[in-house]
Structure formats: structure tokens, C-alpha cells
Amino acid sequence: MSDQNNRLTEYALGILDKKTAATLKVEIESSAQSKSALQDIENALILLAKAEQPLTPSEHLRTRIINAVRQETQFSGFIDRLCVFFDLDRKTLENHLTSLNHVSEKTWQIYAFPGTHLYHFDGGPHIAANADCGLVYVEPGQMIAAHRHLGDEWSFVLQGQMKEINGAIYYPGDCIHRPAGSVHALQSVGAKPLVFAAVLIEGLEFVAE
């Protein structure tokens, strides 16, 4: 199930921490789609609580569940390119991509920057030993502040839209190279969270405003 549906379910059950619940409440109140999804989840939970025997979900709910499960393969069109990007075999890469089904503290570095979550893993043998490889998840509207790259960085957009401070916007399938010494900031724009793959050499340092 998608991370958003998981969060809505946890919200409906009242098991989110106060900070996350408050943030999600604002998102729900500003999105008719999220309100509808939450209502469906709450209705399903009520039916489950009252049921004395297995239930057959409504066609609408069944479709929503099926679409959520399909999140596991939402990046299937990029897998071959990502295998080259990270120098990893298909199975290993697909295992890493499943982490996007549920962004949690078990596997992710949560709130590395405001609204930004990081998932780290090792690249293949042809990736530089000092490279930091992984996935970056930036919630809509959030930014990664201006920073300088100490080495080269490659980013591959998988979902959402990445807007640079120079106004350039990158979309799923775009691959961006930033050379050592380059300075930039980026923002997640659009309705969906920004998700991109990254290979970062030598790290980065934030630039004082």
C-alpha cells in the first residue's frame, strides 16, 4: 500500500505522533482527494469493527486497494536505467524501491531536512567507494536549502517535480549532473511528493544565507 494510504490509515486509527498527525491534518483539509481517501478508510474500519464474518469490499474500495498495491511497480519503467545508475542488479534495486511503499524510521532517515527523508544503500562495484547512494523523498512544498557539492552529484527524478532556484523544473525520467563546487537549492513542487535517486560524491555543505 502507498505511503500516503498508510499514513491516512494510521491517522484514522489515531496512532500517529502529534507532530505528524498535525501536519497530515493540514494536508487532508487542503486536499479533496485526501479527504475522500480518509473517508473511505474510516468507513472500511467501521465495517471491519462491526463485522462478524468476512466482508466483500465495495467496488470503489476494491479499486482503491488494488491501485495502492500497484505502487510497488510504479517505477518499473525506470528500473533498467536505475540498475545502470547505481550499478546494481535488478533484484537488489527492486528491493530498495519497495522502501518507498512505506517511508518509516525503520529504514529511512526521517526529517533529515524539514519534510525530507533519506534512504541510504551501497552502490555496485563500479560506483566510487566514497559515494553516498540512495533515495530522497521530499514532501510537497518543502525545500532542500542552498548547499555546495564537494564532489559530483547525479540525481534521477522518479516522481513529482524538482524546481531549482534558477527556475528550472525537472520531471520523472530527468537525470541531472551537478559538478563539484556547484551550489543549488531545490523544492518539491506539484501535488505528489518529489522522489529522486541520488549518487553523491564527497558529500555537501550548506551555504549560509
Rank of each mutant, 00 (worst) to 15 (best):
H117Y: 04
I66P: 00
Q4A: 11
L150R: 15
L186W: 02
P54M: 01
V138A: 09
K91A: 13
G124W: 03
M1G: 04
V84A: 13
Q33M: 08
T23C: 02
D80T: 13
G190D: 10
I169C: 15
L61K: 04
L93T: 03
A197C: 09
Y11W: 10
Q109T: 07
V69D: 02
L13G: 02
L61V: 10
D132N: 13
L48K: 00
I127T: 13
Q33T: 13
K50D: 10
R178F: 08
I169S: 12
A128H: 12
I79Q: 05
T116N: 12
F121V: 04
Q71H: 13
L135Q: 07
A146K: 14
S34L: 15
I169E: 15
G173S: 10
Y119F: 11
I201M: 15
N101D: 02
A131G: 08
D3R: 01
Q159K: 11
M143K: 11
V199K: 09
H177Q: 12
V189W: 09
H149I: 00
W108H: 10
Q159G: 01
T23S: 09
R90D: 12
Q4E: 11
I165Y: 08
V103K: 05
A22N: 11
I46E: 11
I169Y: 14
F121Q: 09
D40C: 03
V26R: 14
Q53D: 05
I15H: 07
